[in-house]
Computed example of a mutant assay.
Amino acid sequence: MDANVRISDPREHVNEEPRNDLFDLIAGVVGMGGLMTVIFFGMVIFKFLTE
């Protein structure tokens, strides 16, 4: 008795997209640091304008 079973090897990673994880990490850290810097200086300017 043969069953029509299709077995895929989970090591194939057929849906995985090639990405550069280190570049993604660096871009995220730099981007978040830049955003926090802009917010920080914006709040400092806001503080001096409201005194």
Rank of each mutant, 00 (worst) to 15 (best):
M1Q: 06
E16V: 15
G33F: 05
D9G: 02
V14G: 06
P10F: 05
M32R: 08
E17I: 15
N15D: 10
A3H: 04
M43Y: 04
I45N: 01
R11D: 11
L49N: 08
V44F: 06
S8I: 13
G33A: 11
I26E: 07
G28I: 05
I26G: 02
E17A: 14
N20I: 08
G28L: 08
N4E: 14
S8Q: 10
G34R: 06
G34W: 02
N15H: 08
I39N: 00
A27G: 05
G28H: 04
L25Y: 06
R11P: 00
N4F: 10
F23E: 14
G31S: 07
I45V: 13
E12C: 06
E17V: 15
V29P: 01
T50Q: 11
V38D: 00
H13M: 11
V30A: 10
D21K: 06
V5T: 08
F23M: 15
R6Y: 08
A3E: 04
G33E: 03
L22G: 02
I26Q: 04
V14I: 14
T37N: 03
V5F: 03
D21H: 01
S8L: 11
L35N: 02
R6Q: 15
R11L: 11
S8T: 13
E12Q: 14
M1V: 11
F41D: 02
E51W: 05
G28S: 11
V38I: 15
L25V: 13
I26T: 11
E12L: 15
N20L: 07
D9Y: 03
E12P: 00
V29S: 06
D24T: 10
V44H: 00
D24Y: 05
M32A: 14
L49A: 11
G33Q: 03
K47C: 01
L22S: 07
L49C: 05
T50K: 13
V30L: 12
P18E: 08
D9A: 04
V38G: 02
V38E: 04
D2W: 04
I45K: 07
P18H: 01
N15L: 10
N15E: 10
M36P: 00
F23Y: 10
F40S: 07
E51I: 12
A3Q: 05
E51A: 10
F48E: 12
E12R: 13
M36L: 15
R11F: 07
R11E: 12
E16F: 10
L35A: 13
H13N: 15
G34Y: 03
R11Q: 12
E17Y: 06
I45S: 02
M43F: 08
I39Q: 01
K47S: 09
G33V: 06
P18S: 03
F23S: 12
N4Y: 11
V38F: 06
K47I: 12
I7S: 03
D9V: 04
H13T: 08
E17C: 04
V30Y: 02
A27Y: 09
V5R: 05
S8P: 01
N20T: 04
H13E: 12
G33K: 02
P10E: 10
D21A: 08
G28C: 03
S8D: 12
M1P: 02
E51P: 00
V44R: 09
I7M: 09
A27E: 11
F48K: 13
V5D: 05
